[in-house]
Design a protein around this nucleic acid. Sequence first.
DNA 1: CAAAAATGTAAAACATACTTTACATTTGGT
DNA 2: ACCAAATGTAAAGTATGTTTTACATTTTTG
Lengths: 66, 66
Amino acid sequence: MTNNIRVERAIKNITQAELAELIGVSRQTINTIESNRYVPSTILALKIARVFNKPVEEIFKLEKED
Amino acid sequence: MTNNIRVERAIKNITQAELAELIGVSRQTINTIESNRYVPSTILALKIARVFNKPVEEIFKLEKED
DNA sequence: CAAAAATGTAAAACATACTTTACATTTGGT
DNA sequence: ACCAAATGTAAAGTATGTTTTACATTTTTG
């Protein structure tokens, strides 16, 4: 799975730490998701999508190997 | 978080076991998600939503306590 | 009603998410 | 070039997701 969080953050001009605080997780959690080091829970995905006002599918995309 | 999987299954008329096979997880995984006993990963949510041709947000909904 | 199919649930084992702390590296502004 | 802010990364610990096996209960169908 891949994601567009970095791009969406750039559009909204917020840092990883700010996004983390908006969602209620640690900055490292955002960082590792953004770096594709792990797959977040659906709750986190919904919250992230909500911050960016976009559907989950526009931010997180399945890949062939998923 | 709550979900509509049971309703969507009913619309499509498929069993838990069939949904599980379509997605590539065990039947118990579907059963426990459906019973709100745990929150699936974003990969699973995307796959489930894809099976039902609906956005993730229509199948999984955040609650106040999330 | 009886048999079969579907669903609920539970325990153990394993895999993965998430936090915290800490530090190194990179980027941006002056 | 310097300083501050932002980002990358890593290790240890905790929490939670997922599988497998197994069995009980409920629902469906003949």
